[in-house]
Design a protein around this nucleic acid. Structure first.
Lengths: 147, 147
DNA sequence: TATTGTTATACTCTATAACTATA
DNA sequence: TATAGTTATAGAGTATAACAATA
């Protein structure tokens, strides 16, 4: 009998999570989709930061990050402040309206998870959260040109 | 002090998995990207099936599924057989070239995971695989119009 | 010269709606 | 009438390359 391939099973599970992400995306406001929501959540969680840092956290090219941030700036959720240490750079900061939008996002996501994960124990939720964070960390900076 | 929001943390972890998915996608052959790879893996794992069943497994609209399957058919990896029970329906089957491509996909994905998850125990990999599968199951059929 | 960030363009994936052919 | 599947179109997300401003 052939050896079972753990990684092939993990790949199928990871692939299937796309469905969950789309399910969550569907509860977001039409003017604040997944990418904008990620910008707000990360700037809130890690504090003020530069574009390059956010691109690293989102694991996308800076050109992609720039576009997403521009969208949040247009809506007044993020402001771009000058960086006193480097005039090429810009510091991203969550605004008050941004904080309010983030509260709304959290309410919606929490409601969705509450609805779907009612049978889950708190420990299992925490365990999954921890393993996902570890998986993300194990992949490190896996962007195309930022090896 | 405010109560910690488990679900908000889980949402950030789930969101961050996009980076892992993109990292994996990057090792795939240019003519067999993520969606085609998912078609081959699911038809192989669950056996011959109809379009609607595959769309359900992929948790996408059938129009999306139809396009992905068409791509795999054009490459000769999947064949569409008539369904003797319903002439509207078509049965999907993996071909020999499809099986060969799937082998190549598995090799590449396994290599990528081996590289990144070298420090992980088999038990932890299995645990994550299991929790992800359970998460997917808890969300059920979360497609837009197939409540 | 190298780096930070922006913009233009192209590609992948998904959803909606309109269509066909069967049931 | 309703369902299985296809196609056209639009939108979200990402990568590449070319560019401007600054280090």
């Amino acid at each position: 009998m052939a050896t079972r391939n753990r990684y092939e099973e993990l790949a199928r599970s990871v692939s299937a999570i796309g469905a969950v992400k789309r399910g969550l995306a569907r509860v977001l406001p039409v003017d604040c989709q997944g990418a904008s929501a990620a910008v707000l959540a990360l700037v809130n969680h890690h504090g003020d930061m530069r574009m390059s840092r956010l691109a690293e956290l989102m694991a996308v090219d800076m050109s992609v990050c720039s576009r997403h941030v521009a969208h949040t700036v247009e809506h007044g959720w993020i402001e771009r402040l000058p960086d006193p240490d480097d005039r090429r750079s810009r510091i991203l900061r969550l605004t008050e309206p941004g904080r309010a939008m983030l509260g709304e996002l959290d309410r919606r996501v929490t409601e969705a998870f509450s609805r779907h994960l009612a049978e889950w124990s708190d420990d299992d939720v925490d365990l999954l959260t921890h393993l996902l964070a570890r998986l993300r960390e194990s992949f490190g900076d896996c962007r195309a040109h930022h090896a």
